[in-house]
Structures are given as structure tokens and as C-alpha cells.
Amino acid sequence: MDISEYKGVLVFAERRAGTIQKIAYELLGIGRTIADALGQPLAALVVGSGIKDAEAADLIASGADEVVVADAPELAAYVTEPYAKVLTQAIRERKPGVVFVGATTIGRDLAPRVSARVHTGLTADCTGLAVEDATNNLLMTRPAFGGNIMATIVCPEHRPQMSTVRPGVMRRLDKDPSRKGEVSRLDVKIEKADLNVEILEAVVEKAARKNIEEASVLVSGGRGLGSPENYAKLSPLAEELGGLVSASRAVVDAGWAAPDRQVGQTGKTVRPDLYLALGISGMIQHIAGMEDSDYIVAVNKNPDAPIFEFADVGIVTDANKLVPALVEELRTAKLER
């Protein structure tokens, strides 16, 4: 393999049900940084059916120098083999030095299949990506052992250097509609043999029914909120943060929340990117269920609440007043973006 032939960064712009996913913009954010460090272009591959010009324009405004569109009726929904075929074709034709795929339930199905097909290395679930000065190799940093150990991985002799990237970690760029970029089409042929599985039923579930262990953001309420009505007000906040509502044992025992929302003790152990503890004092059993969260914010009236010892940032104030203020601030922050 002549690795000098491989240039540029290619990101897989994941699209579901006609919508480009948030992870695609995050990949463009880190992809831009890596492409600039290498002095090479950044391309986004978008795969689907009926892809609109506006979607490609949006990817360019978010950092791509080129958008490669693979559009076919058979690509409307994610199926491993057709998508693997398309990504493989893009890699073989374009020879990118670096490929980023989101570490989602789609990306983690697709990327290993493709990396095996093109015979290159793949580093899973990266949380840090950088270019090594001396070699221009990609430094891919990832957690292992449940986040207790971090490892930096390189792929020195194979190309492309492939990573799946953990959602919610990389920063997307501010959109710049004046950015210029090209749109090209990948000529794909999906054959009957590629459709080797049959989707009988596809169901989209509301976040409220989802498992709190899978959530990247948890908005968790405790008895300090004072009433079930106040607890119910956490839902709009969770929605604003793209997360789920969870609860302390006291809240579940009081019947304000269902048992499957309980963190700690007989409940669940969670490890989200953000754990927002509102009116939770921080009994040891609760702490044991959430202390491995990446970032913990605690809000409580009582300055001596034990939860503050485990929080990255603590605010001593009435959580019931803070919740609507926070929803307001988040909406403002979103508009500014």
C-alpha cells in the first residue's frame, strides 16, 4: 500500500429518515481541524434517497469543502451491505487519508464492516483526535475499561486511518452560509444481492420510553423539588438538552416517577456525558449509580448537600426556579448558534 496516495479527510454524514444527524456536524467540526492541520481538503459523504441540495449546502456551510452524494431508492433506510458498498466505493475512488464515522448504532455497524473490506485499522469510539507533528499520522484517543483507561492509537502503515467518533464530544462549527464548496455524485449500483436482509418493521420510539442507561444527557430530579408537578417540569429541560429525565429513589418511592427512571441502589447505574442533579441531596446509593458520569452539575438549596462533593459544578439555589431559567438560557444559546 502506497500511503502517500491517500489524502484528505472524509466524514460519513449520517442521515436518518431524511434528516442529517447531529453527529455529522460534529464530525465536520473535528474533520475541519484535522484537514487544516494536514493542509488537505474535507469531504462529507451523504448516503440516502431524495437528498436535497439544501442538505449538501448545509454540510458545506458547516465545514465541508466537498459533499459527495450517494442517492438511490435502495439507500432510503440504513442496511449494512448497501451502505458498506457505498462507503467502500467512496474510499477506493477517492483515497482519503482519514475517515470519520459516528460511533452510533449505525456507525458502529458500518465502520468495522468497511475497515475489514479495505483492510485498514479502525479505532472505536474516539474522544480525542489530533495530527502528530513529526509523521502527520492521526492520533486517535479512546477510553477503555469503562473509561478508567485512555489509550492513544495510531494506524501507521495502512490507509485510510479510520475512527468512529463518540457523539456529543466534538464541537460543530458555527454555520457560515458564505462558505464555498463543491457537490459531486457517487455513481452507485445497488444490486438485489446487496439487499441481504429484509426489514419487516421499523419503529421510532419516543425518548421518554427509552432506557436511561443509554442516554447521553440525564436530567435527574430529587425530593428537593417538593412536588410531582415540579418534577414534571424537568421534561422540557431534558428535551432541550436532548436527554432523558431520571430520578432519585425518593422520587420513585413517592410515585412521581416510574421505577425504570431510578438511578442508584436497586435502580440503574448510569454514565451519561452530562448528569444534571436537581434537588437531589446525594445519598451514597444514588452517588454510586451516577458518579462515573462525565460531567456532573448539581443544584440544591442546601449548601451542605453531599451531592456537591461529587459535582463538577454546583449551584446553591432553588432548583425549581433554576429549571425554567435554564430552559430559557438554552433556547437563547441555540438561537445564537
Binding site: 456532573i296 432553588d318 433554576l322
Partner: peptide
């Protein structure tokens, strides 16, 4: 442990 602030809402 992180910092704790006494602030209004």
C-alpha cells in the same frame, strides 16, 4: 470536587 457557587436562579 468542582466549585460550588451561591447564585440566584
Amino acid at each position: 470536587a468542582g466549585k460550588v457557587y451561591e447564585l440566584d436562579a
